[in-house]
Every structure is written in C-alpha cells, then in structure tokens.
Amino acid sequence: MTHPKPDRRKFLMSGGAVIGAAVATGASGLLVPARAQGVAPTPTMRGGANNYRPGAPIVERIGNGGFWMVGTVRRAGDGAPLAGQRIQVWAHTTEGHERDPQSHGATLTDANGEFRLEMPQIVPAFGQPHGHLAYDSADFKTVFLRPIMPNAGDTSLRADFVLEPV
C-alpha cells in the first residue's frame, strides 16, 4: 500500500523522479505488447479531466451524500485487484458545480480493489448527467474517466479502472 502523493506535479519536479519516470516509461513501452494479451488498460476518456482539481482530500463522503460512485481498480495484464489506490471523484451535483471545491473528494480502494464513495446526487449538466473520476497517483499512469448516467434519476454510477504501471 503506497501513500498518496499530495501533488503529482511537485513529485515530478524533482530531478531524480523525472529520470526515474523516463526510465519507467521506456521500460513500460517495451512491456506493452506482452501486457496487451491480458487485461487491457483503461484509456482516459475525452473530457475526463475537465474541471479536475489536483489533490482533492480523502473524505468519508462528499457533502451530504445520497448518491454512490462505485467501481474497481485492477492492474493491467493480470487483472489483479489493487488495494489502497486513491481515486478522485467530482461532478455537478445538487450541492455544487463541477469546479467548486466542495464537489471534489477522494477515496481509497479496499483489499478487493473496490471503491465506494458517497456523494450528493449527480444532476444533468452540460447536456448529460455525468461524473468524473481520476487516478493520478504516481505508481500507475494517470487515467481520467467521464462515465454517463443512463438515467438522470439513477442514484449510483459505476466506473472501473485498469491501470498500467508507470
């Protein structure tokens, strides 16, 4: 279980880390063909990073709750569940716009790689009722998701991550 970095940019700014990241990226580049045979990594969705606020705090629940954002985090290739991974969530809800700080929060996956974060009801905004999720810690490649609710009245939304090591 790794501890979440408070700010990815700060982390990347240290010279050693940059070299480390470069080496790791090169190595993972070589490993991609082998991994493709197993569980494929989840690609970042278009618009997923919109109104993202780095370093949203880990919270018991966002605002007054009433809606559940759920999902799993697994490792690309073997599909092993990843415990203790920090997932950030934000959306336009009954308690605020996407860009508002109180609309953002984060949670950690449990031993089965599952996360459940209670948050206010998501309401349609910018044409669709949708949520945003981010994995942006340093151990795996950053992924932003933007799942859409099939019905505006739904009280939960699911988003699954398959992460690729950096």
Binding site: G47, N51, F126
Partner: peptide, 21 residues
C-alpha cells in the same frame, strides 16, 4: 457556458468534446 465550465466549452469549440451534441 464558457464562464461556467471553460474546459467543456474549449473542447466543444475544438471538436474534441466527448458529447456529440
């Protein structure tokens, strides 16, 4: 809309939005 959510409008204007509408 730009004032409300700048990145969503930039995506729309650049035709890189996830929403076809």
């Amino acid at each position: 809309l730009w004032l409300t959510s700048p990145p969503d409008v930039v995506d729309a204007l650049l035709f890189t939005s996830p929403t076809p509408f």
